[in-house]
Simulated assay, not measured.
Amino acid sequence: MGLISLLSSCDAFNRPEPPATLNSRYNDQQPALSGDGRWLALVSNRNSSNEILLYDLRSEKFMDLPGLNQSNVILESPSLSRTGRYLVYISSVQGRPDVALYDRATRRAELLTQGYRNWVRNPQISADGRYIVFETARRGQWDIEVLDRGPLIELDIPDGTPVNNEQ
């Protein structure tokens, strides 16, 4: 009986829970703040892999991002829209970076530059979530590209804010 309790207590020490606060003993980097100042996205190794975490500064806790962090994928350079609905980042599978978008409302991630033949880095998303800018090596040097997600997307706007339809 004593051996079983000793083994179970050792097991508990081998798998510590990651801390639920900022500024832990883990490597946290590349912070991005939402336009409304509530959400903080960051890259961390808290769960023994490189992943993007989302921290609610108001409630002081980390939020679940189902479908975002996957094994064998390196995520970096997060950028948030106004209320944190949209998260743009670099997703590298087998060393090939792509610009990706995660929608917190639908809990879905999509690669925006899949099949794109050039290197990409440093994506940023507009406050309303319609435009994404990133650096690309298309011409053999780093240039800026703007991706327009189109007028039919659901914009990230605060409730009750009128939408200006000027084109």
Rank of each mutant, 00 (worst) to 15 (best):
N23W: 13
F62N: 04
L112S: 07
A105V: 01
I153W: 03
S71A: 15
V120M: 04
S79N: 03
L68A: 02
F13P: 01
S49M: 11
A12V: 07
G160L: 01
N165K: 08
G2D: 14
P97Q: 07
G35A: 01
A137Q: 11
L3R: 13
R46V: 05
F13R: 15
L6K: 14
T83H: 00
S9H: 04
N72S: 10
M63T: 07
I74H: 05
R46H: 04
A127R: 12
R82S: 08
R130L: 04
Q167I: 14
Q114F: 14
R58I: 12
R15A: 04
Q30W: 02
R15W: 10
V133C: 10
Q141Y: 00
L33D: 05
I153Y: 03
N23D: 12
L65D: 03
M1T: 13
E135S: 15
D56R: 02
Q30E: 14
A12R: 14
I157R: 15
I52T: 06
L57K: 11
L54R: 00
V88Y: 12
T113P: 05
T106P: 01
A100C: 04
N14C: 11
L40W: 01
K61G: 09
D11G: 05
Q141I: 00
V43F: 01
A109V: 12
D56F: 02
L87Q: 10
E145Q: 12
R82P: 00
I90F: 00
T161L: 10
G37Y: 00
S92C: 00
N122Q: 12
E51Y: 02
L22W: 12
Y131V: 09
L75E: 11
R138T: 12
L33F: 14
L22K: 13
A109H: 05
E135L: 14
N47M: 01
Q70P: 00
S59Q: 12
R108P: 02
